[in-house]
Computed example of a mutant assay.
Amino acid sequence: MQAETDSISIKHWSDEDKPREKFLYKGPFSVSNAELLAILIGTGVKQETAVDLAKRILKASNNKLEQLGNASVNHLMNFKGIGRAKAVTIAAALEIGRRRGYEKKASVTRIAKSEDVFDLLRPLLSDLLHEEFWILYLNNSNQVLKKARLSMGGITGTLVDTRLVMKQALQANAVAIVLSHNHPSGTLKPSRSDKNVTKKLCVAGKALDIKVLDHVIIANDKYFSFADNNLI
């Protein structure tokens, strides 16, 4: 007699409950996140179905796909039943979903609000483990003429080459710029260095009639705007 703690294999489930069959015959919206992940996993382990294993993996990521999407292959392999091939399959599927979501947002060509900056630069900054500082160069219609990475590895006043920023602005015939960098720690609170850099570039831009419109800090799926918070 099968012990109560044993899990019934998915192959013994009714067709309407099997993740693949539900997806195929009822459509993608009929299956849960755990069932979608189970389809990628394929098979579970002894006493645990692929769905149960998927639920356990999701629980470790607070049931958030965004958080799971940041998990490394090595992290996924820590779960019993997930080998290298399954871990790569999961990571690749989540990466496809992320790129699909970013494609449309990354096509922003005009900055009308802080969210436009976030949509444009999030694909470049949100998942980095180090800080990067970027500049958007705009024309008088706030259309993006150019975007350029200024520095990597940390933001301090000494790392900001004001002359280079303004030189590139003049070369691009820009009349305004937007500053942006990421916080890998996840915090959105601007540091003293963030504020000093912003002030330094505002002063330099004023002398050349180049307006600093905003400074947007990106942390994963959130952002902080200096302009929205009256800090610029």
Rank of each mutant, 00 (worst) to 15 (best):
N182C: 06
K80A: 09
T187L: 12
L124Y: 11
K146N: 12
I217D: 01
N182T: 05
F79I: 10
W13C: 03
I135W: 05
Q67H: 07
G154V: 04
D194A: 13
Q67I: 15
S191C: 05
S114P: 02
M152H: 10
K113V: 03
T5I: 14
I177A: 02
G27P: 01
S107F: 01
E48F: 06
K206W: 04
R122C: 15
L136M: 07
I111L: 05
R149N: 13
R149I: 10
F133K: 00
G27F: 04
R20Y: 10
V144C: 04
K26P: 00
M166Q: 06
G157M: 06
V165I: 15
E103F: 09
A92T: 15
V108Y: 05
A176S: 15
H130K: 13
N229M: 04
P123F: 02
V178Q: 04
I90T: 02
S14F: 11
D119Y: 06
L94D: 00
A148L: 12
K59S: 11
N33G: 08
K146F: 05
R163S: 13
K105A: 13
V165R: 02
D228Q: 15
L37G: 00
K195D: 06
T49C: 03
E48T: 13
H12V: 02
S185P: 03
V175L: 10
T162K: 11
T49N: 05
L68T: 08
N220K: 15
I217M: 06
T43A: 13
L231S: 09
D17F: 11
A106P: 07
K86P: 04
R110G: 00
L231K: 08
F226M: 09
G101H: 02
L94Y: 00
S61Q: 11
A60S: 15
E132Q: 14
N196V: 12
L68A: 09
L213G: 05
K211I: 15
D17Q: 10
A85I: 14
G27S: 03
G83P: 08
N63Q: 11
D228P: 07
R149D: 09
A91E: 08
S114E: 10
N142P: 02
D228Y: 08
F224S: 01
D15K: 11
T89E: 10
K55D: 13
V160E: 02
S180M: 04
K18F: 07
G205C: 06
F226T: 05
A60Y: 07
S61F: 11
Q67W: 01
L58Q: 07
N33Y: 08
K189N: 12
Q47G: 06
S107A: 15
S185D: 10
K55H: 10
A169S: 13
K11S: 13
K146L: 14
N63R: 08
R98D: 04
I111D: 02
M1Y: 09
A174D: 03
G101D: 01
M166Y: 05
Q171I: 12
Q67C: 03
S180T: 11
G157E: 07
D127F: 06
G69K: 03
D15E: 12
A92G: 00
I217C: 05
D194F: 04
R110C: 04
E132I: 08
P190L: 05
S193T: 05
H130M: 12
N63M: 07
L53V: 02
G157L: 06
A172F: 00
L136G: 03
L213R: 12
L179I: 14
L213E: 09
L76F: 07
E103P: 04
V88N: 04
L36A: 14
L138G: 06
K195L: 14
N140F: 08
